[in-house]
Design a protein around this nucleic acid. Structure first.
Lengths: 189, 189
DNA sequence: TTGCCTTGAGAACGATCGTTCTCTACTCTA
DNA sequence: TAGAGTAGAGAACGATCGTTCTCAAGGCAA
């Protein structure tokens, strides 16, 4: 018998796969039901509505992102290397099969104008990443403006890789980040 | 009597307003009909399908973008200033009422996975911008990699401004661009 | 004026979607 | 074994969408 937690996880992962590949509105609850091998009744007992499921998927993506960034930072020494590890993490992500950009950016583009919940979830995810970068910049002794610059590079790399399919955007962003960090530390130090 | 060209323009502008504010799938043909004050019959005589209208709207957005970039570059002297003018252009755009990010990025996030036409239109728009940047970089005597970096900054500024609502992303990107250009020219020259 | 063609307004159609309901099969308890 | 409760499969419902069709009103040639 399937544990409720297992089923919940299976539904979230199935929905995430479909949403990410096709967009949220293009995926019906029935397709999610099929992909997750769950009855509609069970699906709606776990999530009250599609909006709820979307929120759960975004929350899960947020956890995955944090875990990925943390893992990439774990093998880096010092704040500067941990900052640069962000772009290495992006690079391996971009090369994954089926990569289609940042799910948060995509969701915002699709539903940010009509769904305040989605818009807020995306904003919070980006604000959280921004805080992470700012903290590392402060730890490295860099000026606050550097955090904004490095975050912009990360966002730009994601959109560029998604649209043009050019996975080298991560390496380009990393090179730019190195220059910006070096310059900022030389000026402020 | 309304000239066919006038009506066509009115429809494209109405559809663009609605698509940009709410997303493409969230806007029905009937809403466009109302906004443009055109009969459904006339709408379908001008555009064979919603897909055709979407393509026309994106093409029009592309022309607007080119015109805006050109206008911003017109008052700048030399390739370096024309490159930086891009970020000034972004800054004034970000501050406009109803700004909700780059329509191409948004459209790609919404329909890039299911509509090859939309995906291709967005790709072409971004490739065209990239060529523009690359040409200016070459004119300035910078290395090819600089073009990629500056384009990533522009994309990242658009995404950041859209989601966080932070209009200073343009200025942050401009500052970063100045550093990258200066460093690249000092190294290569 | 008469008849024809075009046009606008919106009803209608077929498809799809989110959500709920029905019905059946099955499991567990007493 | 009998009966109550649960869960799955999918039909059904109401809404909405893209698209087409109907029909009445109006302009224009003769």
């Amino acid at each position: 018998m399937d544990d409720e937690r297992d089923v919940r996880r299976r539904v979230i992962e199935a929905a995430d796969r479909l949403f990410y590949a096709q967009g949220i509105q293009a995926v019906g609850m029935d397709a999610i039901r099929s992909e997750a091998r769950v009855s509609l009744k069970r699906l709606y007992s776990l999530f009250a509505s599609k909006d709820d499921l979307v929120a759960a998927v975004l929350a899960d993506r947020s956890r995955q992102w944090d875990a990925g960034i943390s893992a990439a930072a774990a093998s880096a020494e010092g704040p500067r290397e941990r900052l640069l590890a962000i772009y290495d993490f992006l690079g391996t992500w971009f090369r994954e099969d089926g990569f289609r950009g940042c799910a948060f950016i995509n969701s915002f583009g699709e539903l940010g104008g009509v769904s305040p919940q989605v818009a807020e979830a995306v904003r919070e995810q980006k604000a959280s990443f921004r805080r992470y970068v700012d903290d590392l910049v402060a730890e490295a002794g860099g000026p606050p403006a550097l955090g904004a610059q490095l975050a912009i590079l990360a966002e730009g790399a994601q959109t560029t890789a998604a649209i043009s399919g050019d996975t080298t955007a991560a390496a380009d962003a990393r090179t730019a980040a190195e220059t910006l960090i070096t310059t900022a530390l030389a000026t402020s130090g």
